[in-house]
Simulated scan of single mutants.
Amino acid sequence: MVEIRHLKTMQALRDTGRLTDAAERLCVTQSALSHQIKELESRLGCELFLRKTRPLQLTGPGRRLLALAEQVLPLITGAEHDIQRMVHGDAGRLYMAIECHSCFNWLMPTIEAYRSNWPAVDLDFSSGFMFDPLPALHSGELDLVITSDPRDYKSLAYLPLFQYEMQIAVAPDHALAGQAFVSPGDLAQETIITYPVERQRLDVFNAFLNPAGVEPAAVRTTELTVMMIQQVANHRGVCALPNWVLDEYVRQGLVVALPATKAGHWLTLYAAVRAEQENTAYLQSFVQSARSHCLETLRGVRNG
């Protein structure tokens, strides 16, 4: 019943105090504005202002309608402003998750720097191990997923961040420590320590052991990278991690890192996004910031 134009009329009447001036402000004729007001008063069954007063005096219902205008019109203006920022890529939503669970140490600083540069972006992060994020990205629940395992979703685009080498970590005095590299068959009698996620989401299985038809002797899980390293150092198994993750622990003498195969096993880490959002400014900025930060700070990675 009450329309936005009616609310704007009430504000104009309040601000100008005269029907003629209100009509000029609203860019309508005085007769058109008078007709609009009479029509609204007819709908509401009451007068909105007292005629023949200078300046115009609002009635009780008129003041109530003015109060509504003061509440609603700023919200509409704000929404219009936000929509325009979204259209131009200055604002929006960026809900993200990771499949690379060793990425926390570079992802968190990237997120914090990004927040300060894009304060209008609603940013959130999900990190559950038992949560498969790519289907959630496909369905629109998420907006970006860090992954090294692209899957065949036609709705998704995979933007490369960097390349890294998957390496096998063993204790310094492990039987494999003196080898130049590790073959899949070398792990047939070993316990593999992994993050607690499905095998098809782990590089050591889907990119190394499974193609060779090799099954390890056992699998043990832990949620923390540092606990994984401690278990390897204590001869409770071996693990496969990116070279940039293992570099710190190798320098501390806790583990030895070996290439997976003679040529090394290089993988690409991607930022997966929905194809329809691929060129959005705030999303492209996050990807570029993450890529630059990683190439500058992570040892052993290379441009993807």
Rank of each mutant, 00 (worst) to 15 (best):
M86Q: 04
E47P: 00
Q288C: 06
P160H: 12
T225A: 15
D124C: 09
Q252C: 06
Q30T: 11
F129A: 12
V145A: 10
K262H: 13
R302D: 00
R63L: 14
D152C: 07
A177Q: 02
P184F: 08
L295W: 13
I76E: 05
R64N: 05
M227H: 08
H6Q: 00
L241H: 07
V273M: 10
V72D: 05
G60D: 13
W244L: 03
Q30S: 13
T194S: 14
A23Q: 02
L44N: 08
V301C: 07
S102N: 03
I146R: 04
M96Q: 12
E248M: 04
Y158A: 04
L241Q: 08
G300P: 05
P109W: 05
N279E: 14
D82K: 11
T261Y: 05
D90I: 03
D21H: 07
K262W: 07
S34N: 02
F49G: 00
E190Y: 06
L44M: 14
T194H: 15
A188F: 03
A120P: 00
P61H: 06
Q288N: 10
E112R: 06
D149Y: 06
V256P: 05
E39N: 13
E39K: 14
H35N: 13
V214S: 02
V301P: 02
R236M: 14
V301Q: 04
L94A: 04
A91T: 07
G253S: 11
G89K: 07
H265L: 15
L246C: 08
A263C: 00
L7S: 04
A257Y: 03
Q200F: 14
L224V: 02
A257G: 03
Q179H: 06
E296K: 10
A175R: 13
I76N: 01
P184V: 07
Q284N: 02
Q230P: 00
D173R: 12
H6E: 05
Y95M: 12
G92T: 03
E141C: 12
T77P: 01
H265Q: 12
L142C: 02
A169W: 09
A136C: 14
C100F: 08
T59R: 06
A180L: 13
S42Q: 14
Y153V: 08
T280G: 05
S155G: 10
I192M: 15
L40S: 12
E41F: 04
A218T: 05
A79S: 13
R220H: 08
G128M: 15
R302F: 03
H81S: 13
G213S: 04
L254G: 00
E248Y: 06
Y153M: 04
S126E: 12
L50N: 03
W244G: 05
E278P: 00
L283M: 13
E276H: 05
V238K: 10
A188D: 01
R251Q: 15
A233R: 11
A290D: 00
H35C: 03
C294K: 08
P135D: 10
T16E: 13
Q284G: 02
A217T: 01
A177W: 10
E80R: 12
Q288G: 00
L267K: 06
P242H: 07
V145T: 06
R14P: 00
R85T: 01
S116T: 09
T191K: 12
T53G: 00
Q230W: 10
V2F: 10
V87D: 02
T221V: 14
E3Y: 12
